[in-house]
Design a protein around this nucleic acid. Sequence first.
DNA 1: CTATACACGTGACCC
DNA 2: TGGGTCACGTGTATA
Lengths: 218, 218
Amino acid sequence: MDNIGEEYKHYWETNMFLQTQELDSWGLDEALSVYYDSSSPDGPTSPATSKNIVSERNRRKKLNERLFALRSVVPKISKMDKASIIKDAIEYIQHLHEEEKNIKAEIMELESEVLMMNPNYDFEQELPVLLKSKKKKTEQQLYDSFTPINFPIEILELRVTYMGEKTIVVNLKCNKRTNTMVKLCEVFESLKLKVITANITSFSGTLFKTIFIEVSFL
Amino acid sequence: MDNIGEEYKHYWETNMFLQTQELDSWGLDEALSVYYDSSSPDGPTSPATSKNIVSERNRRKKLNERLFALRSVVPKISKMDKASIIKDAIEYIQHLHEEEKNIKAEIMELESEVLMMNPNYDFEQELPVLLKSKKKKTEQQLYDSFTPINFPIEILELRVTYMGEKTIVVNLKCNKRTNTMVKLCEVFESLKLKVITANITSFSGTLFKTIFIEVSFL
DNA sequence: CTATACACGTGACCC
DNA sequence: TGGGTCACGTGTATA
C-alpha cells in the first residue's frame, strides 16, 4: 500500500509541471485497480472502490488544473498557496469591479458632456459601447464587447517638390472618409516637421492638401 | 470513531452556511484530540496525529471559505461545483480584461472629443479616474491603467462671419501645442459640417485657421 | 445501481 | 523539530 502511494508524493505544483509524465505513470493506477480487483472479491472495498479511486484522482487533477489556470490569469500572485491563489483572484476581481464602476460613470459623464456640446452627435454609430452592453444585459446576463471601425486613408496622388534650399511643398490628394482629415493631421504631427502653412480643400468627396514645410528640424 | 465523523457529513455548501454552528461543534474536536492523547500513547498515531487532524481541518475550512467568497464575487455561476466555480471565475476575469481594454480606448476617444469642443476642459479636476489608478501603479506593481497626455487647445481668437445665405467663414487663432492641429481637425470632423476649404498657417507658435463652411447640413 | 462530488483522516514533504 | 501544505484512499450522501 505505502510503496504505491510514494510514487505520487510530489509537491502539487511540481505535479502540474509534469502532467504528461503523470499521465504515463497512471499506468500504475490500472495495476492498482487490478490489484484491488483480483485480491479480495469478498470485502466491500474491492469492486467499486477502485473505480472511485481513479475517479477521485481525476477530480483532484481537474481541480488543480483549474486552480493553475486561475493563477495564470491573475497578476500579482503573492504566494503559490491554493488558498492564496483564490484570495488573490478575489481581490483582483473586486479591484476590476471597482475600476469598471468608476470607468462607466466616467463614460456616462463624458457622453453627456459631448451630447450637451453637440446635440446632433450619433452615439449609436460611433460609440456604441454602453448601449450595446445594456442591450445584451437585458437579453442575458452575458458580458459585452464592441469593435471600433476604422477606415484607412486612400491616397490618390502624392507629390513632393523642393522649393529653394529650406522649403518643401507636399501635394496630397485622397478620398474623403470618416476621420480622414484627423488621420492626415496626425501623420504630419508625428513627423515633427515645421509647417509654414497648410491648405486643405474638399471637393466632391476628395481631399486636396497642400503643405509648405521648412526643412530645418527642431 | 464513526459517530464523531457523522457530525461533519454535510454537503460542503451547507457547511459554509452553518459556519458559526460548525465553530460551536468544534468543541467535539477538542474532545477528539483529548481522546487521541489519553487513549493510546504507544501507537504511532496518537501524539502528533491529532494535531495534524485539526490543522488539516482548518486548512480545508479556510480553502472552502475562500472558494465560497470567490463564488460570491463572480456573476453567472453555472454550477456549484468547486471546479466549475473556479472555471467561471477564470472566464469572468478574461472577460473583464477584454472589456477593460475596449473601454479604455473608448474613454480616450471621448476625452479627446470633449477636449475639442471645450478646449478649457480640466480633466485633472473633474475626471481623475485614470490618473488616480495610475498613481496606484507607481506605488506598487498593481494593476495597470494608462493616462493620455492631453494639452487643451488655447484659443486666442474666434470669429464667425456669415457670407451670403449658405456660407460661413470661421477664423480661429490659437497657440501651437502638441496635437493641437489634430484636435482642431477632430472638432470640425465631429461637427459633421460640409467644409468647402480650410487653411492653416503656423507662425511663431501660433496657428491661424480659416475655414469656409457650407451651411446645408447633410 | 452507477456516477459524481464532497469531507475526512493519514503519511509525507518542506521550511 | 514542529507548523503548514499537499496528495492520497476511503466512506458516504445526492442525483
